[in-house]
Amino acid sequence: MEKFVRHDGLVAPLDRANVDTDQIIPKQFLKSIKRTGFGPNLFDEWRYLDEGFPGQDNSSRPLNKDFVLNLPAYQGASVLITRRNFGCGSSREHAPWALMDFGFKAIIAPSFADIFYNNCFKNGLLPIVLSEDNVEALFQAVHGKEGYRITIDLEGQQVIPETGAPLPFEIDEFRKHCLLNGLDEIGLTLNEAEAIRAYEKGRMEREPWVFADH
């Protein structure tokens, strides 16, 4: 996984609450057996006027010119600000894969759905929870100035907007550590293989049926 230490980027505002994973990456694109290539179909039903299908040439499709990510001002955006409960719905990791493949490095919202939030960290995408008021202030700032950028300082756990004071955010120590160092979680867990085996031994005695072959 790529490290995330500090990021400075253009901000795109997606002014909707409860954005679900079916919107982030519609189901027809889940049929891929790869982790990459989902970017052109991020928010497919909102970005394009026609219905998308896997493997098509997206460059010739009619664009919904009103959709925020299609506006010239937000081309190259790498930070998304949005409203509460972002990423609700299915557990598809294709949602963070699509956001990253498109070029996003961080998502800022007042709240995230649990599974989506968790999935982001496995891929080096940083979800940041800020208060409703702070998110609202960012929306106003972004709408007020073309090319609005922010800096995210993960080490210091703060969002530094172009204007105004830095905004601190919370993050689990373990997740922060993994992101800062780009660590492979499976490798880390396998360092504890002895503990897992010891646990298994105890469980096998207490609940042998859990370990039965079938």
């Binding site: 299915s90 968790n118 867990t189 396998l190």
Partner: peptide, 16 residues
């Protein structure tokens, strides 16, 4: 509970 694909791999590899 549901998990993402990275966790599917994590569970396959570590059972945790």
């Amino acid at each position: 509970h549901g998990i993402g694909t990275s966790e599917v791999e994590h569970v396959l590899a570590t059972q945790t």
